Amino acid sequence: MSKKINSLFIPLRVNFRKHGPEIAEDVFYRFHPATLNVGSEICVFCKVQKKLTKEHVLPKWLFQNKTNIGFEIEVNQQSIPYIKSVVPACENCNNSILAEIEKKIIHILENLEKNEYYDDNDLANIIRWLEILEYKLQVFSTRLKYIKYANEPFSEFGTLPVSWMNHFWEMKPFKALSNIKFTQRNISIKDKSSRLNSLVIFSTKEPHFEFFHLPTQYIFISFPMYNNALFYFFRKRFENFEEPRAEAIEIMKKILD
């Protein structure tokens, strides 16, 4: 089981080491109005242009195919259903790699709920999966067009991607490109042993789905079908399990209460 899921991450690591910068720049510039002669869409995982499919940012099994929930884009007050939130991925990356990874992650989550056997490798693979989710979130926001507020005086704001606008007021729009490259680098690193303390696993009393994240900082997901939840810090490292758990609880209280 462990060997099978571990091998699935290899092509993703190889592709990002080889094509990561090109993919990141294509994602970043493709929807900018100043970009001319835009080429054909590419798979955001391997760069190929053939047999592209739509890969959901959050897996449909995670939000249980519900059509009435989705992303609330605070920067321009958009509401995008999860079911319509997708990124381009080739048939092989989508069906032969990402879908198979999710099957193995589901099995690990089931074991967590039942308190059955799991080891550090299982936890490392959860981290790898969460890093893939973060990457898809980064790509999605960079492909999403900013819709200006009513009566906004600067009409050109409506031509930029949402991810650019997230950093616009700091005058750091290229931070969006930096974030994409950061998530690619995370995925390309095989060894996750130093990251295990950054993953916090919670048991949930009432079945519910909840999701929030702060780009390149943390992500939280609760699984109604497994009565557990995950909180992961993408950048921070901790010396023990207690410190990240306490910090995660404080963040959850501020956001969920």
Rank of each mutant, 00 (worst) to 15 (best):
L58T: 01
E25V: 02
I219W: 00
L196M: 14
S188Q: 08
Q64F: 08
L144M: 14
H19F: 13
I180P: 01
L133S: 07
E41P: 00
K104T: 02
N166Y: 13
S141N: 09
V38F: 02
T53Q: 06
R128K: 15
K190N: 11
S188I: 07
G158I: 09
L196Q: 06
L62P: 01
M225C: 08
F28K: 00
M165H: 03
I251Q: 10
K47A: 04
E210W: 04
Y146D: 08
H107A: 08
F157I: 01
E91N: 14
L214V: 10
F211Q: 03
L98M: 13
Q77L: 12
P173H: 03
I108P: 00
R235D: 11
I101S: 02
D257F: 05
E243I: 07
I106C: 04
L52H: 03
K50T: 14
E206F: 03
V162F: 04
D120A: 11
N197D: 06
L123W: 04
I97N: 00
T216S: 04
I42K: 14
Y82P: 00
F211E: 05
I219G: 01
H107S: 10
L130F: 04
S188K: 09
K205I: 12
G70A: 07
E74I: 07
M1E: 13
G20A: 07
N115D: 15
E72H: 10
N186I: 07
E250A: 13
E74M: 09
T53N: 05
C46Y: 05
E210R: 15
Y146L: 08
N228D: 03
N121Q: 12
L137R: 00
E55K: 02
L58N: 02
K192R: 14
Y118E: 05
K136G: 02
Y82E: 05
F174C: 03
L36A: 11
V57K: 00
I80R: 03
N179R: 13
N37A: 06
P207H: 06
F212C: 04
T183F: 08
K253Q: 12
E22D: 13
E242Q: 13
Y118N: 06
Y82H: 05
Y117F: 13
E25M: 10
I83M: 10
F223I: 06
L12S: 01
E102L: 09
V162I: 12
I5E: 10
R185W: 11
L177S: 15
E170G: 03
H32T: 13
Q138C: 13
T142Y: 06
K172S: 08
Y118F: 15
C43N: 00
S79C: 09
V57D: 01
K175A: 11
A229G: 04
E113K: 15
L214W: 11
K192F: 11
A246G: 09
T53H: 03
R185H: 13
S2Y: 10
E100D: 10
P153L: 11
R17D: 06
K148R: 15
L199W: 02
P88K: 13
P33A: 15
F182H: 13
G20R: 01
N95W: 02
L62A: 06
A150R: 09
E72N: 06
E22T: 07
Y135P: 00
E239T: 09
I187Y: 06
I219Q: 01
I251E: 10
N151R: 06
N228L: 15
K84Y: 10
E210D: 14
W61I: 02
R195A: 12
S40H: 14
S188V: 08
I147S: 10
I255N: 08
F202R: 00
W61F: 12
